[in-house]
Amino acid sequence: MSTLDRTWWHKQWRHLRLWRRFFAQAVVRETHFRAHFLTTLLVGLVQLGLGIVPTLLLFGFTAEVHGWSRAEVIALVGVFQIVTGLMATFIAPNLNRMTTYLTEGELDSVLLRPVSSQFYLTLRWINVAELTNVASGIVVLVIGLVQAGIGFGPGQVAQAVVLVGTGLVLLTAVWSAMSFLAFWLQSVNPIGFVFLNLMEAGRYPLVFFPAAVRTFLTFAFPVAFATTFPVRALTGDLGWGTVAVGLGLAVVAQGLVRLLWRRGLLTYSSASS
């Protein structure tokens, strides 16, 4: 433990305070670029509209697919929009910089700071404008839930929120792991594309995929925890068991990413000095 913090808890508290500063700074920064805010909002809305086209077309040909009605899948698209919005706000601006951090030697100045370098690299930059997509996602989710006529209690909402949270942690872990490969590969810019394209599978319920792909989307690329499971929790056919599995997986994934980060740092030999 460094001399900065008396206990482990103090260290977490310090990082949380630091993150609040990052957020406040990002908000101030955003007010300087109002056009950026507006274009992000517009592009987000157009993408949301076009992203829902396949779903609407699909349910023009059938009323139900594997027990999912149109309204339920629309609710799912809402959750997908919320999750991708949150990733784009808090995670993407950081992991997209990974190649630069390593090849330009910016990592040097991060390592010198009295802060967890993994925390700093994963959460330093925040794109506040992307939060508009979270807002539009919530609207779509509510429309879907109302259309489906789903009634749910506070317990189910709690399940759904926890599941979205574990989904976010799991997806961040997968993307981080893919990005940290930069230590060995030098350039990982295209990896972001692969990640975002795989994310698209989260637009659809898990049961729309063949069994083998379902396993992949639950355990290897766990987008199911971020979209399908929260909606199923709201419709009431998911127990706390899945939530527990998600939490367990999230802890394991974080541990593995931490390990990968430490291994990667050992191979880092600075780029500029």
């Binding site: 396949p54 699909l58 059938t62 697919v65 659809y204 729309f208 995929f209």
Partner: peptide, 8 residues
């Protein structure tokens, strides 16, 4: 998309 439409 292929998997989704085949399922449908």
């Amino acid at each position: 998309s292929l998997l989704i439409w085949r399922t449908a």
